[in-house]
């Protein structure tokens, strides 16, 4: 199928407008994912900290009791 020059131009303009929309979606969604992962890492650090330090505190406490 042969496209007229006007139609071709229209479709390029549509593509560019679509690219603007995709820019927004990509940036917004990726930033949210990054923020979410950052929060996950913070939560994980806190959990690990508790899992490791609580038993240690218990051991130290037991040592002092003896």
């Amino acid at each position: 199928m042969v496209q007229s020059p006007e139609r071709a131009s229209d479709s390029i303009d549509d593509l560019k407008a679509e690219q603007i929309r995709l820019w927004t979606e990509y940036v917004a969604d990726t930033r949210e994912a990054i923020d979410e992962n950052r929060q996950l890492v913070l939560d994980l650090k806190q959990t690990l900290s508790w899992r490791v330090t609580r038993p240690l505190r218990a051991v130290r406490g037991a040592g002092r009791a003896r």
Binding site: I20, T24, E25, A28, R31, E32
Partner: peptide
């Protein structure tokens, strides 16, 4: 978030 980013762009 998409709206904010879109409006700012």
């Amino acid at each position: 978030t998409r709206e904010r980013v879109g409006q700012a762009l």
